[in-house]
Simulated assay, not measured.
Amino acid sequence: MSFSRARLAAVALLVAGATAVAVPAQAAGGHRALSRFDDGSFESPKVPANSFTELTAGQSIGPWRVTSGSVDLIGAGFWQAAEGDQSVDLNGSNTGAVAQTFTTVPGATYSVTYALAGNPAAAPAVKTGRVLVDGQDFQDFSFDITGKTPAAMGYVGRQLSFVAQGASTTLTFASTTTGAAGPVVDDVQVKECKPCCG
């Protein structure tokens, strides 16, 4: 496929909020929690420019791990990133998911923000997926690729918050779209809320 290499300088993020309370963490599959959430822009490892790498369940993208199916790690210039150079298509050759486990303070509230788009190369027009916290569905999402292009992906911002129940928490982004062109995620940020955080 041939894609334009042009990139937009700025991305307008629209915020849609959702709040829920996490249940105790389930088994993390032997993965140690990071001391803090890291690499929310999927910048490591670097993928050759204008290309992508498919990763399957059990493989890692820096601190993230592919927990099911397959995903594509998109390199610089292949299409527009929301932040940095790289992003993740949650569908590789099939429906996939990525997760990261990091340390948390039990009882503390955390805010999660992320940029959402969709692979514009193929149907379906509406890409769907969900965000899970410790295995529990916290937010379903959808993105319509109509009118979007590799140079203008149309990223939108999404937000949710959770109350940590344990010393570590696992955050998962999972596609619910069939096929090889799924929702695209980038610029994931996790911050502990102070008393004023809403």
Rank of each mutant, 00 (worst) to 15 (best):
F3H: 15
A6Y: 10
V15Y: 05
G17P: 07
T19N: 07
A25Q: 13
Q26T: 13
A27R: 05
A28Y: 02
G29I: 03
A33M: 06
S35P: 00
S41K: 01
S44E: 09
P45A: 09
A49W: 11
A49H: 14
F52N: 11
T53E: 12
T53I: 12
T56V: 13
T56Q: 15
G58E: 12
P63I: 14
P63M: 14
W64E: 04
I74M: 04
I74L: 08
A76N: 12
G77C: 11
Q80I: 01
L90G: 01
N91A: 09
G92D: 14
G96Q: 04
G96F: 10
G96W: 09
A97D: 03
A97C: 04
V98D: 03
Q100T: 07
T101S: 14
T101V: 12
T101A: 10
V105Q: 14
P106Y: 15
S111H: 02
V112Q: 08
T113L: 12
T113K: 11
Y114W: 15
N119H: 03
A121G: 03
A123V: 11
A123P: 14
A125P: 00
V126P: 01
K127G: 00
T128W: 06
G129L: 00
G129M: 01
R130Q: 14
V133E: 03
V133K: 05
D134C: 08
F138L: 04
T149Y: 09
M153N: 06
G157Q: 05
R158W: 01
L160S: 06
V163P: 02
G166K: 12
A167W: 13
T169Q: 10
T170G: 09
A174F: 02
S175T: 06
T176V: 06
T177G: 00
T177L: 06
A180H: 03
K191Q: 15
K194P: 01
K194H: 10
K194L: 15
C196A: 15
